[in-house]
């Protein structure tokens, strides 16, 4: 949502069951929802909206693999190539002793990588200012938003009648 401003029409619902029904209705009526905003994760909403499954966990796996290879490869290089030292009569390449650090770096890379990826793909981060449609969306209101930029009036009226049909408690227009 950078640069270009756009017109938004959004309605607030008081309960997540109303919201889910509304989203299903919008789907049946073929209305294209811009986004849905809720104060907490509502289960079943992603299916109702037709959101695809997140692939964040795949990224986590890749980062984890990177971590284990970094740790194990580095320790192997240090103790067999760069500066081999005998500790306690064990072989240079003492694999069991490398397990704890390899494990820790797997977790570290995976966790840090996933968290950073999450913020980047969501466009969130320190100092980011996204437009807030309504102050109570993070409190107790469930919001369905449509983009109305350059749409004909009858189309926008269609959205309005959708909101009154599905029992939205309040409907607002906003330019963000």
């Amino acid at each position: 949502m950078k640069g270009k401003h756009k017109d938004i029409l959004f309605g607030l619902y008081n309960d997540e069951t109303e919201l889910l029904d509304a989203v299903h209705t919008a789907h049946e009526d073929g209305l294209e929802i811009m986004d849905v905003y809720t104060p907490f994760p509502v289960h079943g909403l992603d299916e109702a909206m037709g959101l695809s499954e997140s692939r964040l966990h795949i990224a986590g796996f890749v980062y984890g693999m990177l971590g284990i290879m970094t740790a194990f490869g580095f320790m192997t290089w240090v103790f067999t190539r760069d500066w081999p030292i005998i500790f306690g009569g064990k072989p240079y390449w003492s694999v069991p002793a490398f397990i704890p650090i390899s494990f820790e770096l797997t977790v570290l890379f995976s966790a840090v990588g996933m968290v950073v990826t999450f913020y980047v793909i969501c466009g969130l981060g320190p100092g980011v200012k996204n437009p807030i449609l309504h102050d109570r969306i993070t409190d107790d209101k469930f919001c369905v938003a449509f983009e109305t930029d350059g749409l004909a009036k009858d189309k926008i009226d269609g959205y309005r009648s959708f909101f009154s049909k599905t029992g939205a408690s309040e409907v607002f227009e906003k330019n963000i």
């Binding site: 905003y37 909206m49 966790a111």
Partner: peptide, 26 residues
């Protein structure tokens, strides 16, 4: 961090929490 409560963000947030929990347990 500019949180809006978008449905997609919540979906990813839940995935992230679950996988972080899976990592934090071991």
């Amino acid at each position: 961090f500019g949180w809006t409560g978008s449905a997609k963000h919540w979906q990813r947030h839940e995935y992230l929490s679950l996988v972080l929990a899976g990592l934090a347990t071991p």
